[in-house]
Amino acid sequence: MDKLRLRFEKTGRAVYISHLDLMRTMQRAFSRAGLALKYSEGFNPHPLLSILLPLPVGMGSVCELMDFRLREETDLAVLPERLTAVLPEGIRVTEAYEQKRKSVDLKWLAVEGIFAYDTRDAGQMARELEFFFAQEAISVLRKTKRGMGQSNIRPAIREINFRPEEGQVRLYAVLSAQEPTLNPELLAEALRQLEQALAPDFARFTRLETYDAQMQIYR
């Protein structure tokens, strides 16, 4: 069976599993579930697994997508359950299906973030954060393929809003997933570079949903 796609969650302690380690973890989980993955041909065969948008270490997600191929026909309806049963704590497969859409069609990612403020007023922070991210351009010094460079992250933010909570601000944002890729961590990094007074004491993010260019849910 070719062109299969898996949708899974990576939360809790599993957020610290790196992309490379996750590939091996998935490969082993398939093996434990008795599902034979197809391997590449050639001198050094490897299982044909690919994760659409590698997740940074430390970030959670409830909308990860992974393409794979199986050697044998399998009932996709029960596959999520079979895999989840043999995965580490925090990784849960929610869906397995034949993929219809190319990975390049994935354009936007909805993310949730927590900005912790240990001593500052969350209400005030939320208001000022809205103001900060409403600017027309937010130029951040970041690592690019060609070394360090300034880049404007604002066009990659389609939507962003902030809600104050006890000791923290919860944000919801829709960010560009590909071309360009905006790592949500850059939202906090922008504050550290440009507006120290708003820089959170700690930030963490969770991916919520994937969308195409027309903001239709992408699967």
């Binding site: 809790g12 302690r13 599993a14 610290y16 599993i17 790196s18 380690d21 973890t25 082993r28 989980a29 434990r32 270490v57 430390g58 043999v86 995965l87 580490p88 704590e89 925090g90």
Partner: peptide, 9 residues
């Protein structure tokens, strides 16, 4: 960090 959190299969 994965080596400091447990949660393995």
């Amino acid at each position: 960090p994965a080596r400091y959190v447990g949660g393995e299969y």
